[in-house]
Amino acid sequence: MKLGVFAVLFANKPFEEALDYIAAKGLEAVEIGTGGYPGNAHCNPDVLLADAGKLKAFKQAVESRGLTISALSAHANPLHPQQALAAPDDEVIRKTIELANRLEVPVVNTFSGCPGDHEGAKYPNWPVAPWPNDYQEILKWQWEEKVIPYWTEVGGIAEKSGVKIGLELHGGFSVHSPSTLLRLREAVGNVIGANLDPSHMWWQGIDPVQAVNILGRAGAIHHFHAKDTSIDPVNINHHGVTDMQSYTMMLDRAWQFRTVGFGHDMKTWADIISALRLVGYDYVVSIEHEDGLMSVDEGFSKAVQNLQQVLIREPLGEMWWV
């Protein structure tokens, strides 16, 4: 396995300065935002696709520092019911796939998106209860008319480009759990897989180790984010897991994102890393920092320190004792 980082953390730094900082921390990989929610401060697909010289220089800037690009990330909602919002998100995903092909990056990370509840809808609708039965009807319509058709088309483009799609399992989007990821993968094909982030499993009540086992046995983990979550034992009973309070309301929220090791102990993280190795995932563990109690530099540095303790780097080799 290699340790990497989602470099949008350092969007305020010039690209090469950010790479120098990342390499100095001993990391081996970077995940780079290309638009959508992460922005494109370091990587504008329009610029790189239009200029072969700039594309070459971009790739050289990464490789000259001993780094690889683990994924290009365009987290967005291409299924938003307002076409004015969906169209640019769809466009950046397609351009990111083309750019990944040119850069020989194997994975494009994004969200599945979430449609509305009918053709004339204005806002996304995320059904999370089977009753009243209206929600079942909405869910059926969304998947049959929007989710599966869209990803069948875009998945086909990615497959022809030699690129895998890593969908982040995230609340608020149609694909948010192991079962919904596998449902879409069954409909579209193996080009669809997870960008698995334990933090989003914990707040939904899903054990990340079991999520790794479920998805890993299906060969459905394309990329992995390292981010933690803490659950407040009092507030969770007040607000439930679907707490709608702003992330800034940290004292009152049911749960909040933390840097690695500050939501769950290192034995838990060692179990996650071991589960990844067990199911054959030996790719990049990409740090994502969204900890409201720590600066970017401190949260990132502590995540690096903690993960260095449990990351399994070397090839397995033979079991000499067998």
Rank of each mutant, 00 (worst) to 15 (best):
R258C: 14
V296Y: 08
N101I: 01
P81T: 09
L181G: 01
G155F: 09
I138H: 08
H118G: 12
P14K: 11
K95H: 07
D243S: 07
G205C: 07
G240R: 10
G53F: 03
D197W: 00
L79V: 10
L184D: 06
G39W: 03
L169R: 04
G189S: 09
H42C: 08
G66S: 06
K227M: 13
V92C: 00
Q142G: 05
V304T: 06
G299R: 07
E137N: 06
V105H: 02
G240F: 10
A11R: 14
K160V: 07
H225W: 09
L184E: 08
G39M: 01
V8W: 07
T96R: 03
A220Q: 05
G113Y: 10
L316P: 05
M249K: 15
E91C: 14
E153N: 15
G35M: 10
K160L: 11
C114P: 03
A220L: 05
H239T: 11
G193Y: 02
E28I: 03
V5T: 11
L49A: 15
V310T: 11
I93L: 15
A275C: 14
E314R: 14
Q256Y: 06
E119P: 04
E288K: 12
P124R: 00
G280I: 12
S230V: 15
I97M: 03
L67I: 04
H176F: 08
T96C: 01
V108Q: 01
L85D: 08
V284Q: 05
H200C: 03
V322H: 02
V47G: 05
N195V: 00
G39H: 02
C43N: 12
I157K: 10
A254C: 00
L139G: 04
V260S: 09
L251Q: 15
S286Y: 13
L55E: 02
V175E: 11
K164W: 04
V296F: 11
A71D: 07
G4P: 09
N12S: 12
R185Y: 15
V209M: 06
T229M: 07
A129I: 14
I287V: 03
D243K: 07
F300T: 06
A50C: 08
V5K: 03
W141A: 09
M201P: 00
V163H: 00
R65W: 11
M1W: 02
S274A: 13
E16K: 03
G317C: 14
M249P: 00
V234L: 12
L3G: 04
F224I: 02
G216W: 02
A76W: 09
A187L: 01
T68E: 13
W255G: 04
G240W: 09
S174M: 12
C114R: 04
V279I: 08
N101H: 14
K56L: 10
L3C: 06
L167F: 06
P208T: 15
N125H: 10
Q136K: 15
M250C: 04
A71V: 03
N109R: 04
S179H: 08
Q204Y: 04
E28S: 10
D207I: 04
W203V: 04
D89T: 02
